[in-house]
Nucleic acid binder design. Structure first.
Length: 157
DNA sequence: GCCAACGTTGGC
DNA sequence: GCCAACGTTGGC
């Protein structure tokens, strides 16, 4: 296994924001219903990985803070709970199709590093989140990209 | 296995 | 609220 890896995870702040995470300290990241994102969770995420916490459909849209993976992947039990929003009638308890991890709060940026800020930085030209039509809710980011976003959050202070 | 229809995401 | 882009579904 390679060293520490880095991710970008999207959330609509109206549903769950970086402030909610700060309040709770840690949370289970349930509700991922996309196979590619599931594969990242199941096959690649490891405890200690860094997370850019991204606010989508927000004002402003962008990276709002930092979190950290703090569990291994385990079955997402909301998938077989008919009362839950994330219920998936096709999956069965004895063959869990969907997985989740726990993440813990690390830092809330004093000011969100906005999409415009990210776009304006040539070092981030290859970031997946900036690509047209990119809807994946979990994306890998490179260590250099992670560091650069951190640096930008400090600079805007 | 193809592909049109549909539902969802997410920036604007 | 609009709509482009994308993933999934289902008829054939």
């Amino acid at each position: 296994m390679a060293g520490k890896q880095y991710w970008l995870m999207k959330s609509e702040p109206e549903a769950f924001s970086i402030s909610d995470l700060a309040k709770k300290g840690k949370t289970c990241w349930d509700g991922v219903r996309n196979y590619q994102a599931r594969n990242y969770i199941r096959d690649q995420m490891a405890i200690g990985d860094g997370v850019l916490f991204y606010h989508s459909n927000a004002d402003p849209t962008g990276v709002a803070g930092i979190a950290e993976i703090c569990s291994k992947a385990y079955p997402d039990s909301t998938a077989w709970d008919p009362k839950h929003d994330h219920f998936d009638p096709k999956t069965k308890k004895d063959a869990p199709a969907w997985m989740m991890v726990d993440i813990k709060f690390v830092e809330k940026f004093p000011k969100t590093v906005s999409l415009d800020d990210l776009r304006a930085n040539p070092k981030l030209a290859d970031m997946l989140v900036l690509k047209r039509g990119q809807r994946l809710s979990i994306q890998p980011v490179t260590p250099a990209e992670f560091e650069e976003v951190l640096k930008m959050s400090r600079a805007s202070r």
